[in-house]
C-alpha cells in the first residue's frame, strides 16, 4: 500500500474524528505511519456488527416493556455482557443472575443485590429498575 492508497473516506458518523494508523510506503519505498480518516469497507463491515448489537438491545428493551424480561436483561445486553460475566463482576452466582432475568423474580430483589448489579453495570439503582421508553440511550 502506498501513501496515496491509504483510504481517506469521509465517515464522520463512524469514526468520530479518530484516525487509524496505517503503514504505507512513501515515494522512496520506505514504510511510514499514515493516519487514515476512515475506510468505507471497514465502516460497512463494522456497522453490520454494530447494527446487530443495537437491534438486539432494542429487542430486549421491547421485551422488558412487554413484561417478558427484567430490566436487568436490557442493561446486560447494553453492556455487551452475558450472565456468567455479569455474575462475576457483581459477585453473584451465574444461576442467580439467570433467574433475575425473569421480571417476577427481579421485582422481589432486595436493595443490596440491586446495588451490586448497578455498580457492575455502571448505572444507578433507580435506572436499573426501569428501561428507557425511547430507544437508544447510553
Amino acid at each position: 500500500m502506498k501513501i496515496n492508497e491509504v483510504p481517506q473516506d469521509d465517515v464522520p458518523y463512524f469514526s468520530e474524528g479518530i484516525k487509524k494508523g496505517n503503514y504505507a510506503l512513501d515515494d522512496q519505498g520506505k514504510y511510514v505511519m499514515v493516519p487514515s480518516k476512515g475506510w468505507d469497507v471497514d465502516e460497512f463491515i463494522n456497522s453490520l456488527a454494530f447494527n446487530e448489537y443495537e437491534a438486539k438491545v432494542e429487542e430486549t428493551r421491547k421485551a422488558v416493556l412487554e413484561g417478558k424480561k427484567s430490566p436487568l436483561a436490557y442493561y446486560m445486553e447494553l453492556r455487551q455482557m452475558i450472565p456468567e460475566f455479569l455474575g462475576k463482576t457483581a459477585g453473584i452466582a451465574t444461576f442467580r443472575v439467570k433467574r433475575h432475568l425473569r421480571p417476577e423474580i427481579f421485582a422481589k430483589l432486595k436493595e443490596p443485590v440491586l446495588d451490586s448489579y448497578a455498580k457492575a453495570l455502571s448505572i444507578t439503582r433507580e435506572e436499573l429498575k426501569t428501561v428507557p421508553h425511547n430507544s437508544q440511550e447510553r
Binding site: G21, N22, A24, W39, V41, D42, N46
Partner: peptide, 13 residues
C-alpha cells in the same frame, strides 16, 4: 481491519 492492525491484518506492519 479492525482498530489496530496497521492494515491487512498486521501484514504491512
Amino acid at each position: 481491519e479492525e482498530v489496530g492492525t496497521g492494515g491487512a491484518g498486521f501484514r504491512f506492519m
